[in-house]
């Protein structure tokens, strides 16, 4: 069975490809190739100095070592804490804030939203440096505690191994809460107001209206933000690196900081293969959730 090639379609196809070709080339060089390279590298031992990158094939031993490495598990636990705080606390607080602003009908509604959103546009480097100073032994937080007579609670907050990962996670919440809140606020604009009015006329309480009418209508936004926060939690690096370097004694080490320490850290082992293995595991987790997100939205759109 022969196919007739339509000259118009062929010309149109070539033209289309030529338009997207530069993007594909750049995408290939700066994304696809490094990802592939990392996957391959994770099966080798390479310190970054030798030009003979692929001389020491170690099979799956980087992955096997990863599961035996106690610091990897510490970083895994800490990553889960960050993800938990972002998914549960940040989503919850952002939803709460959006509802207050939506139903509160403040005079300074726009200003309030702008203030909450503002940290989201500041560089994480700046935020990290500022909070490092605020949370130091002689920093702003402890000075405030002294002023209100709670000096005995003043500690070097980022030096406390049991607290540091929670503190860092809550700084992340502070930064991104405005962004998530705007997603919820936009979703709230689209809810069916007639349904809400009818509920109030029928005597529904505000609490009942929120949980039985509002939340079900914005469930897609809630799910979207939860997935975004989940992926964001796994990818967190800049702020944690600036604030703690993953310390003290790995107490705030997460996947990304550990990967950086192992592969590039100033005093690290410069073990690029092992760092790549950590990166691959991280990528797999993120890809799984990215696929879930894509699938979910296709279902919403009825594709």
């Amino acid at each position: 069975m022969s196919k007739n090639i339509n000259p118009y379609n062929l010309k149109h196809g070539i033209e289309s490809i030529s338009w997207i070709l530069p993007s594909i080339i750049l995408f290939g060089i700066f994304l696809i190739y490094p990802i592939g390279f990392s996957v391959v590298l994770s099966f080798f031992k390479w310190n970054g100095y030798s030009k003979d990158i692929f001389s020491n094939f170690v099979g799956f031993s980087n992955y096997i070592y990863l599961f035996k490495d106690p610091i990897f598990w510490v970083s895994f636990k800490n990553t889960l804490i960050v993800v938990f705080v972002l998914v549960v606390f940040m989503t919850g607080i952002a939803l709460f804030s959006a509802l207050i602003i939506f139903f509160g009908n403040f005079k300074l509604n726009n200003l309030t939203r702008a203030i909450i959103f503002f940290p989201g546009i500041i560089s994480q480097i700046i935020i990290g440096l500022v909070f490092r100073r605020i949370l130091a032994l002689d920093g702003g937080l402890n000075q405030l505690l002294s002023l209100i007579g709670l000096k005995k609670f003043a500690i070097a907050w980022l030096n406390a191994p049991n607290l540091v990962i929670w503190i860092v996670a809550f700084v992340l919440v502070w930064q991104w809460i405005g962004y998530i809140m705007i997603i919820f606020y936009a979703a709230l604009q689209n809810i069916d107001h007639e349904l809400l009015d009818a509920a109030f006329i029928d005597g529904a309480s505000l609490q009942g209206a929120i949980f039985k009418i509002v939340v079900p209508q914005i469930r897609y936004a809630i799910f979207l933000s939860a997935v975004l926060n989940f992926i964001g939690g796994f990818r967190s690096f800049n702020l944690i690196w600036i604030m703690t370097n993953g310390g003290p004694a790995h107490a705030s080490e997460v996947f990304t900081t550990y990967m950086y320490n192992v592969a590039f850290g100033q005093y690290g082992p410069s073990n690029m293969g092992y760092g790549s293995a950590i990166a691959v595991i991280l990528a797999i987790i993120v890809v799984i959730f990215a696929v879930i997100r894509i699938k979910f939205f296709k279902e919403i759109e009825g594709v």
Partner: peptide, 9 residues
């Protein structure tokens, strides 16, 4: 990805 990486490497 794998083919390109192995090839280029």
């Amino acid at each position: 990805i794998f083919l390109i990486s192995f090839g280029l490497a």
